[in-house]
Design a protein around this nucleic acid. Structure first.
Length: 420
RNA sequence: GGAGGGGUGGCAGAGUGGUCGAAUGCACUGGUCUUGAAAACCAGCGUACCGCAGGGUACCGGGGGUUCGAAUCCCUCCCCCUCCGCCA
């Protein structure tokens, strides 16, 4: 969430930034936040004045009792009970005001960075870079599900029987290819990031911390009996690792990476775009996360983006880098790159990575701060994350890109050591 | 799942109803001493919020209650530890 102080100090900028996301009632939102904050402060001031009064009275009564003047204490004790009722009422008012403000703030998304292009739709995303040529084939290239079927790499039907659509079995060379990619990605990531094996189920507070709750509730599976959520991405456990903690400035930047399966309900999808490996309920991903000093996050965003791109280059896959337009940004992000590989069999781009800066938006929610070395109050860190990479579409692109006329396929050299 | 014991500041650890936001030790910061360092000594050292300010309020796992007054008593939830059971 945004900080009230910031909104207070920059109402116009906030409105303009929200407008870039297509939110036209920005001024109204800002006004409501400021008004609600005023209400909250007033309620607090009133409450605290009464509490002060009651505390003084109690001290007074304590002194009288100690001196054995029980009679003299009777009047102030009687007065206390009416004070107590007032305090209870004022306390409830203050809590309500606080709650209302925080709910209001949760409806306001993060503000697009100035370097983010304008636009509200997918077509406004800017392809800022492309690596490799889109290949032309002398034959009709097959989609990956066809190649996978002929080689027995993936068993979608039995996956559907055992779990449901979107839960494939990877078999034999298909399973091994997955393991190879996970190891290849992790070996690259761990040269720079601490390797973590996180919990695969998280509690509600963690889902709230990274912003999956309350707005994206339907995207996660939910183990209702125990109040746990299978992770939709390793971002959740990794970023929550330091929730409610104060780090030393010298701890920054914190760099974490993890391989995890990811579970997503992805309700409402249909058609050709969900065929094969395009969209699954369970998939594998290596995630990279950094917590940085506020002054460094945009620099770090570029380096994380480059970490992910290095992998695609090593795999020899044509890909392009999209800079997401203001209207297509995730709710919590200020700037976001998507990396898309070329799917030769489907003749379209497939997203395999998204790298984002959240600035202090998640950190404020999660209360992750650092103590400045030069002294002063703890400050919020900036959080960033990115996929490096998500597996299924990489598998799809590898099969499709490297296919031959006889429907065999080759794999890039970097994977050979991982496949033996 | 059953029985028992616990959750206090960065860490360790006192505190069982009245100036307790909380002793003490360690760690950390500044200073004295020293050629320098160590040791010793002195001082400082939680977080959030309200207030122009002096200052005030809240926080001893979370929530609720008893009381004029709660870290301390009661209820409830969460978490941790030990033993038993079950299990990979």
């Amino acid at each position: 969430m945004l900080g009230v102080e910031f909104i207070q100090a920059n109402p116009r900028e906030v409105c303009q930034a929200l407008a870039r996301r297509g939110i036209t009632e920005g001024m109204d939102l800002v006004d409501r936040v400021l008004e609600q904050d005023r209400v909250r402060r007033e309620a607090l001031t009133n409450l605290q004045a009464k509490q002060r009064e009651a505390n003084a009275e109690s001290r007074n009564i304590g002194n009288l009792m100690r001196e054995g003047k029980r009679e003299a204490a009777k009047a102030p004790i009687a007065r206390q009970s009416s004070l107590k009722a007032e305090i209870k009422e004022l306390g409830e008012a203050a809590a309500n005001a606080e709650q209302t403000l925080s709910e209001l703030l949760l409806t306001i998304p993060n503000l697009p960075h100035e370097s983010v292009p304008d636009g509200l739709s997918e077509s406004d995303n800017v392809a800022v870079y492309q690596h490799g040529e889109i290949p032309s084939f002398e034959f009709d290239p097959l989609p990956h599900w066809e190649i996978a079927r002929r080689h027995g790499l993936i068993d979608f039907e039995r996956g559907a029987k055992v779990a449901g659509a979107g839960f494939p079995f990877y078999m034999d060379a298909g399973a091994r290819l997955h393991r190879a990619l996970i190891n290849f990605f992790l070996d690259a990531a761990t040269r720079k990031y601490r390797e973590v094996r996180p919990p695969l189920l998280v509690n509600e507070a963690s889902a709230r911390g990274t912003g999956q709750l309350p707005d994206k509730e339907g995207q996660m599976y939910h183990v209702a009996m125990d109040g746990l959520y299978p992770v939709p991405t390793a971002e959740v456990p990794l970023t929550n690792y330091f929730r409610d903690e104060i780090l030393s400035e010298s701890d920054l930047p914190v760099k974490l990476c993890a391989y995890t399966p990811c579970w997503r309900r992805e309700a409402g999808s249909y058609g050709a775009h969900v065929r094969g490996l395009n969209r699954l309920h369970q998939f594998d991903k290596v995630e990279i996360v950094q917590l940085t000093h506020p002054e460094q996050s945009y620099e770090v965003l570029e380096s994380m983006r480059s970490d992910a791109e290095t992998l695609l280059k090593a795999l020899n896959l044509p890909y392009r880098r999209l800079l997401m337009c203001a209207g297509e940004l995730g709710f919590n992000q200020t700037k976001q790159y998507d990396l898309e590989v070329w799917s030769a069999g489907q003749e379209r781009w497939l997203e395999v990575s998204s790298i984002s800066n959240f600035t202090d938006y998640q950190a404020r929610r999660m209360n992750i701060r650092f103590r400045p070395e030069r002294g002063g109050k703890p400050q919020l860190v900036h959080t960033l994350n990115g996929s490096a990479l998500a597996l299924p579409r990489v598998v799809a692109a590898l099969l499709e890109h490297n296919q031959t006329e006889t429907c065999s396929y080759e794999l890039p050299e970097v994977l050979i050591p991982y496949l033996s």
